[in-house]
Design a protein around this nucleic acid. Structure first.
Length: 127
DNA sequence: GCATTGACGAAGG
DNA sequence: CCCTTCGCCAATG
C-alpha cells in the first residue's frame, strides 16, 4: 500500500538532476498567497509537466514529511474539490484551514474557486 | 521487471 | 450531463 515514509524527507533522490521537481512544487505552494487557491494541474503546467498533474499530488504527499510549512490545503484539483482532505491530519482539517482564510467551502468544494484561483503560470510568469 | 495504484486532467461515449 | 477510458510519471508490491 502507498506508504511513502519519506519520498524525499529532506533528501530527495537524484535519479538525475531533475529531483528539483519536488522542491519546485514546494516552492510554488509556499508562494500561494493567503486566501487563494490553485490546482495541481496549474502547478504542473507551471513546472512544465502539465500532463503529469499526478506527480504534483505525489510530491505534495511528501510535503507532510517536510519540516517546512507547506500550505497544501490551498492546492486542490481543477474541479475545486478538496480531494486531498483525506491526507491531512483530519478529514476536516483542510476545510477548516481554508475557511480560516476566508475561503468558503461547500460540500468539499471551494466556493468561487475560479475567483480565488491563483495560477502560478500567470502570476509568476516571466513575461 | 511487470502489474497496480494515485492529493489529476482531458477527451470520448 | 454523467460515466468510462487513456495518458503521464513515479512509487510500491
Amino acid at each position: 500500500m502507498k506508504k511513502p515514509d519519506s519520498p524525499e524527507n529532506e533528501k530527495p533522490r537524484d535519479p538525475r538532476k531533475h529531483n528539483s521537481f519536488y522542491e519546485d512544487v514546494y516552492e510554488v505552494v509556499k508562494l500561494i498567497p493567503r486566501g487563494r487557491v490553485t490546482s495541481y494541474g496549474a502547478i504542473a503546467k507551471y513546472l512544465g509537466t502539465k500532463m503529469s498533474s499526478r506527480m504534483v499530488g505525489w510530491a505534495l504527499n511528501g510535503s507532510h514529511f517536510s519540516t517546512e510549512k507547506i500550505p497544501a490545503h490551498r492546492v486542490i484539483n481543477r474541479n475545486g474539490m478538496l480531494t486531498g482532505k483525506a491526507h491531512f491530519a483530519t478529514p476536516t482539517r483542510m476545510q477548516e484551514l481554508l475557511e480560516k482564510e476566508k475561503i468558503k467551502v461547500k460540500d468539499d468544494v471551494v466556493v468561487d474557486f475560479q475567483k480565488l484561483f491563483w495560477d502560478p503560470a500567470v502570476e509568476l510568469k516571466i513575461d
